[in-house]
Write a protein that binds this DNA or RNA. Structure first.
Lengths: 344, 344
DNA sequence: GGGCAATTTGCATACGTATTCAATACGCTC
DNA sequence: GAGCGTATTGAATACGTATGCAAATTGCCC
């Protein structure tokens, strides 16, 4: 039944004509808390329904300078953790009548291009995960009153707000678990070397080991590039054919790399977990809870972090200006499962 | 250095003033293929750079009636397959200068609300995965010249375009693999009962088994709800404590459910794969290739399907009208790994 | 240098809604 | 019924860009 060539657009003027009121009235009928009589509003909504009228948010955005849209830029969409983050943002923003522009960028290159693009769309805020941004672009956003929030990462010298978990503390927690389990020789499968997330976790982990009297030479570092495949391959390469003796304990700087390490150790190198090698992760993604892994890990409180981000966005929206350099640090927590021996 | 209270907006008029030209010239300088002299364009771009001018896409959209934005609505974001789809769309659309609105909806309820919202934003197209939509809303989109594409699902009686893979054929392929491996007793872990995706795969699979002389009573159906956890639990419940004898072969209607079945069978029920029970999946997600699974499965050609979808969107954009009811069917292919015994 | 076509330019307007302002209607009190 | 404050209403304008149109400029050939 649908005609393909119907070029008619239904506007508030059409609704106004049908309802016998002015265009202003139509606008007011659709704006909550606007001054209009109940009787007239009903009549207008009725007319709108008849015409299948949908208010043009583009025109509205142009005039109000609010688009009810948030941009989220993902640097590593292959890490399930960031899918959880994306999902949380989408669902919560949808609930409050906002929508999200989703972008992906190479974590090694800068998100500036993507940001310039969304700037043109007058987004109400930008959330950046695992991506770089120049201070010039940051200032540009802040000058225009668009809040920009670095999620789980910070950039020294940047004016952007930051919401992250205590990566250093989490690294320390895991180191302690290994120490209690009497591990002596360690390996760390590191992620994106440009990102503070991996750096901080490695730093906390290493710090704590050194404090416990472990020699730096007993801590090997392996590049896992934040993804499963690279982590799996890197571990394989490091220990295949007795290239080096297997360590007692491996810290996968995120769960997906820890899972890669587990599969390499167990299926390719034929060692047992946790009897021969213990493994710890970071994030607590659902995949790590599954039977083949049952990964002991550090949990990040995603909901808290997302809520905190939304608060910053909301304040910026209400006040119409950006409070520069807000910083929220969420606590982390060790989740015991089966890849680290439990001290008795 | 960024001031928080700078309310100045840089518009094309400002750039025009600085460059000593008209606003039209500025607009033309930023519109590829517009009639403007090189010398003037340079001067304008220089001025724009000085002012950090970013063209307002909202204003542009209002007048051109094109937003360069595509909406993608996901019904099951927990299935990694649809994350692959989302990623493919985002990356390809970004390349061609478009951005995507990402929405999630309950696969059981309708996407109508989300669609009405994006309609107001004048999106250039809507892609729907694993979600319901009313014919009324479909007509509304088509009437307004907004193409709407059902990805891997169809809705009888709907005028929306469809891009999907040969789910029936894929189901048959897998049935054949099982038949060759001499399986006698079967189970199917089904997905969303409302969706044609699961229905078609089950239908093709069952059809082929019946053709091979398998009795309907030898085919058990289990509800897995399209997600890992439910599939895992459902399999457990069906066979725990000898509730029923284990089948020879299980068809997980998508990979993530097949993975749930594998973990249940191997880790909870203590049976071997493929010696005791064979398992086949559908989708070919990267997770299924990992060491603990090595899942034999049916591959969907995601790239082909996404490209085909983009073609439909592009045609609609160029012609300014929607070609109703386009339908593309992509072929599927069996990928042999280790969860089905290879006939010798 | 004259004449003509092709290119470049600016003016004015339109896109569809939100909002200010003045005007009108309404509800009360005395 | 006069007078006053409040709630509704519509006309007009602004948001920032794209584009049709006419005017102006350029380039070219003889």
């Amino acid at each position: 039944m649908s005609s393909k060539q119907n070029r008619t657009r239904v506007t508030s003027h059409d609704v106004a004509a049908l309802a016998g009121v002015s265009q202003s009235a139509v606008s007011r009928a659709f704006t909550l808390g606007s001054s209009i009589s109940d009787e007239k509003r009903e009549r207008i909504l009725e007319a709108a329904r008849k015409l299948s009228y949908v208010p043009n948010s583009i025109a509205s955005s142009l005039i109000t300078r609010r688009s009810k849209t948030i941009a989220i830029i993902l640097g590593n969409i292959d890490n399930p953790f960031y899918i959880l983050v994306l999902k949380a943002f989408i669902e919560k923003l949808q609930e409050s009548g906002r929508q999200v522009f989703t972008f992906t960028v190479d974590p090694k290159s800068s998100a500036d291009d993507a940001i310039m693009r969304v700037l043109g769309y007058q987004v109400d805020g930008i959330v950046l995960t695992s991506a770089q941004i120049s201070t010039r672009t940051t200032s540009l956003c802040l000058d225009r009153g668009i809040p920009i929030i670095l999620f789980n990462r910070y950039i020294p010298g940047s004016d952007a707000s930051v919401v992250r978990c205590d990566n250093v503390g989490g690294g320390r927690l895991l180191a302690e678990a290994f120490i209690k389990a009497r591990a002596k020789r360690f390996a760390i499968v590191k992620g994106d070397p440009m990102g503070t997330t991996s750096q901080d976790r490695v730093q906390g982990f290493t710090e704590r080991l050194l404090e416990a009297g472990i020699a730096r030479s007993a801590i090997q570092e392996i590049e896992g590039n934040s993804v499963y495949d690279d982590a799996c391959k890197a571990v394989l390469q490091a220990y295949a054919d007795g290239a080096a003796p297997l360590p007692d304990a491996i810290f996968g700087v995120n769960d997906i790399m820890a899972m890669g390490a587990i599969d390499a150790i167990r299926h390719r190198l034929g060692a047992r977990i946790p009897e021969d090698v213990m493994i710890g992760g970071f994030d607590d993604i659902p995949e790590g809870r599954r039977a083949p892994y049952e990964l002991t890990t550090i949990r990040q409180p995603i909901d808290e972090m997302v809520d905190e981000t939304l608060k910053i966005l909301d304040v910026a929206a209400e006040e119409g200006r950006v409070q520069a350099d807000r910083h929220h640090l969420a606590p982390t927590r060790l989740i015991w499962r089966k890849t680290i021996r439990r001290p008795t």
